[in-house]
Design a protein around this nucleic acid. Structure first.
Lengths: 247, 247
DNA sequence: CTAGCTTCTTGTCAGTTCAACAAAAAGCAG
DNA sequence: CTGCTTTTTGTTGAACTGACAAGAAGCTAG
């Protein structure tokens, strides 16, 4: 019970970033090699302290995005993921981190930031498989970010955030396949995405070609919520009882 | 750029709670009348400061749930909603709040807690309609909590958290209707929920009755993710173009 | 104790969607 | 032109959806 003299204990606030992108059809996350203690020399998610008492949290996330990844937050998707405050998560003391999820299209190779000795894109599979590990509770944060991405591309247009301004339907399919981790039928995918009102806007008869038949170009449509959603099939180990079988 | 002497600014951390329940088929939220400044005498969401530097955030939420609402957190749904840290959100200074969403079944009339002069269930419609207002940015938090509930009962079993241990399918339908704000066909609803594998487990031939034919009793099943999801129909103002019309 | 009322449960049926596969279209390389 | 790749359009049977009818199982009133 708080008495008259009790004062709430102050904590230090950081932002951490799960920045995802697609490189050669594989899902990558941006990680840094820590240049300072604790966990010096280990891999970690980019992030840092709130810079001053007047800085909004999302502004801090945007700033770190710029400082540590040289990415412009105005052009890419950024959302709050969750707040991680286990008392023992940081050996320096009570440090609470507001994690964010960022989705970036394409490519630019990142540069080392202020307190990171190296920053690089790494396939997420390196971490989910356990081959590489992350400092602090960043493994948990990454898992939560991936799960958020997996479920959110089901019923929102988030997948378009992985693509450039204009893209083909096959480009979009690569996003779904990389995030979900299995392949989809191109013919059914092709019609399904176009059947969702407001998901995609065709950009005038423009096309682009590499090897096969040229593909139509689209851009993200006005609708953020996908109805009907792009439901991923259940894992193949489950035998889904159909409504008729159940009766 | 942080120099050698720079120290991250400490902030004060609070937890706030959006506690939802159903009373006579209407969605209610628990609000308190603030007993202390700021906003003394205004309505607000229950919440409070982290009690000490070693308290985990979710533990703080559980504690506030007990202190301010006399609810046992072990038996009800509690999840993190989001973190609100606009620099000007609290006139006392830089106070960051980790909001949580709690779902409670039924009934007990709450009692006034430590720094709340009154606590009571209030229909959410009072706030969403603008008839009543909330202190701080709690209106935003409530809106976010409601939206989270609306979308989450679509593809998770969250709706069962509004019900008692055992419940009828009509009970469950009332939850969906209250949260979504419109009525559903009982006959289609009846079969739809039972067609989702793992959503409901029938409890042995038990029944219960008030006026009509006795209804079967169920309890929450083992599955947390609903496949297929309980999709709400789109708002009636939209004319959904069918796939065949689109072609 | 039967008629009527309420609520729960099962049936039915047409329109729509979905997944799997075939096939056509459109470019390029040789 | 022939073959190869990739994109786009068709087809088809099974499954799901939403709207509604009808039966089942209690209670209450007369």
């Amino acid at each position: 019970m708080p008495n008259e003299t009790w004062q709430p204990p102050p904590v230090l606030l950081t932002v951490d970033l799960v920045i995802l992108t697609l490189r050669s059809s594989t899902l990558h996350v941006l990680v840094i090699e820590r240049g300072i203690a604790p966990y010096k020399g280990h891999w970690a998610l980019p992030g840092g302290f709130i810079s001053d008492a007047g800085e909004d949290i999302v502004d801090a996330a945007r700033r770190e995005l710029r400082e540590e990844a040289d990415l412009d937050a105005t052009s890419l998707h950024l959302e709050q993921l969750g707040t991680y405050g286990r008392p023992d998560r940081d050996p320096r003391g009570r440090i609470v981190s507001v994690a964010h999820l960022a989705i970036a299209p394409g490519l630019p190779e990142p540069e080392a930031g202020t307190d990171a000795s190296a920053a690089s894109w790494c396939p997420v599979e390196e971490f989910t498989s356990g081959r590489r590990s992350l400092a602090f509770d960043h493994h948990q944060i990454l898992d939560d970010g991936l799960e958020r991405a997996r479920t959110k591309i089901e019923h929102t247009s988030l997948a378009t955030a992985f693509c450039d301004e204009t893209f083909t339907i096959t480009d979009l399919q690569r996003v779904y396949e990389a995030v979900w981790g299995f392949e989809l039928d191109p013919r059914n995918f092709y019609r399904k995405v176009q059947a969702v009102p407001g998901f995609l806007t065709p950009v005038g008869s423009d096309r682009r070609t590499t090897r096969g038949r040229p593909a139509r170009l689209f851009q993200a449509g006005p609708e953020h919520l996908l109805r009907p959603p792009m439901m991923r099939p259940l894992p193949p180990d489950q035998n889904p009882p159909t409504q008729s079988e159940t009766k």
